[in-house]
């Protein structure tokens, strides 16, 4: 049944690797993506990995659907066993957890009957997997948040969430790379730039990488360029 290869448009296939979120899949998909890009040269236009899928858009004058289908099959056949999959890189994100930078800490503490310190230690002890990048440039969906602090999105998203905000939505956590509207529970702020169009790389994340949040104090936060948001509009 899995993996399965399905055409979705005139010039795209989607590969399904499973039907539920499995933290082993993003690394596997990253390997298939890398292999497929090697095999198909300039014929691929986009290759978008996400949780359980890989979307492959191609240039039909450079490769035919039949040829690409065969290449995908061979990339899948050459998959290394799970324990041989190279670990992606680990990205450390210094994070200032506080009521000032994380206005939803109090909300989660109340809902879960935990102290704020406890929530911070649970969130920062876990190592997360980059499962997908999307929603906004450089926005990495990280899983899996410990059950003890999982919290649903706000019914009404905030009009404005500052850049660097660290949020929780159910089993996922993420950093908003740029200021945007957002409905996740904000618990802290990471002062590092996570999307810089003139940078190389423009975002540190790749699907399959792992991420570790490190709690920092106010002084470190400010010295890393962190800013205080005085106006948390709901």
């Amino acid at each position: 049944m899995y993996p399965s290869i399905k055409p979705v448009s005139e010039s795209a296939f989607i590969i399904y690797f499973g039907d539920h979120i499995d933290l082993a899949l993003p690394q596997l998909i990253a390997r298939v993506k890398a292999r497929l890009e090697q095999l198909s040269g300039f014929a691929l236009i986009e290759c978008i990995a996400s949780y359980t899928t890989l979307l492959v858009e191609y240039h039909p004058l450079k490769i035919s659907a039949i040829e690409l289908h065969a290449l995908i099959e061979s990339a899948l056949r050459e998959l290394p066993a799970e324990n041989q999959v190279a670990q992606g890189k680990c990205i450390e994100l210094p994070t200032y957890y506080s009521l000032q930078s994380g206005p939803d800490l109090a909300l989660i503490a109340k809902a879960k009957g935990l102290s704020i310190e406890h929530i911070i230690s649970i969130h920062s002890q876990q190592r997360y997997t980059v499962c997908a990048i999307g929603f906004a440039p450089g926005f990495a969906f990280l899983a899996s948040v410990d059950k003890a602090i999982q919290s649903p999105r706000h019914h009404k998203p905030r009009m404005l969430v500052p850049a660097g905000s660290v949020g929780i939505a159910d089993q996922q956590t993420a950093v908003y790379p740029t200021q945007s509207p957002g409905g996740w529970n904000i618990i802290g702020n990471c002062p590092l730039p996570l999307f810089d169009p003139s940078g190389d790389p423009i975002t540190p994340f790749s699907v399959g990488d792992s991420v570790q949040f490190n709690a920092i104090d106010f002084d470190d936060y400010v010295s890393l360029g962190g800013q205080i948001c005085w106006d948390w509009r709901s």
Binding site: A12, I14, S50, Y51, L55
Partner: peptide
């Protein structure tokens, strides 16, 4: 589960 979307 969120997945890549093509134009159209």
């Amino acid at each position: 589960i969120s997945e890549g979307i093509v134009a159209g």
